[in-house]
Amino acid sequence: MGKQLIKGNEAIVKGAILAGCRYFFGYPITPASEIAEAAAFYMPLVGGTFLQAESEVASINMLYGAASGGIRAMTASSSPGISLKQEGISYCAGSELPIVIVDIMRGGPGLGNIAPEQSDYNQMVKGGGHGNYKLIVLAPNSAQEMCDLTMLAFELADKYRNPAVILADGFIGQMMEPVEFPKAVEKIPEKEWALHADADDEKKLICSIQLDPDVLEKHNLKLQEKYKKIAAEVRFEEYYCDDADLVLIGFGVVSRVLLSVVDILREKGQRIGLLRPISLWPFPSFQIAQLAQKIKHFLVVELSNGQLVDDVKLAVNGKKPVLFYNRMGGIVPSPEEIIAHIEKTVKA
């Protein structure tokens, strides 16, 4: 297949369309706007609909309505917009609607800035809205993965009738890299629960309200059962972990920096590796726990106050030290900066 040098944000839209998505509801925000712009351009060419909503609140609710019709639909935003969407996301999770949400994270809190951060980890991975729900969260670290994981997100969303999220940072969204686009999905799955505007609809109901506590508990238990099944979808990448003493953990743009760190230090003969979670939920806890048996220490690097590190600590469960290095405000540390930190804090 042909190769194209393309922005991560644009690769998302092309991937989505190849995955059979034909509905996009969005609202502009840097650094995610190219997604809406590309959707506005391409959707009409493939028999799709692009609609710029009046807000992120409206766009997630349009998505809720459209997904009720069983088609593939998506929205995209960046951190402040995602905060606004949270109520709607909770409704989609409660109603078990398979939607795809893209979050190109920027600096916070508040209006913050537009530089890359990873401080939406908690609000996406832990469920930023109300209720006991889980989102499938995929974290690409290249333009290629922006395409591939978006396609996967649609597949997993449909497979489990659950919202799925692409969680990327400003750099992964803005960066251009070559992408090889895979073949298009020709037919999306039929959904017998979805509305079709026909006589059968009277038997269907899209809703998240259950007044009776017993019924609502049952619904919650059913969701938790589903989440257990989704755990099998865990995805991660290991790089030189086999004989490592120190394993670095990071996702998104950070994992790219960590890759450089490993390359540089391996060249100097140090036993260092990288574990990159590709799915942030389900989280590769098992793999991290296994590594904890044989390595000496972990170093988690993230662009936040320490959100991913909590999940790593839960997985390691006190067996090995979990060190932490972070930057906030939109600063991406250089490999040299991280190496200096390692040299200062990690005793071989």
Binding site: Y64, E87, A197, E202, L205, I206, C207, S208
Partner: peptide, 13 residues
């Protein structure tokens, strides 16, 4: 066919 919406968002849905 029924969809239950979040508060105020029925026109968007």
């Amino acid at each position: 066919g029924n969809i239950q919406c979040s508060h105020g968002r029925a026109p968007a849905v």
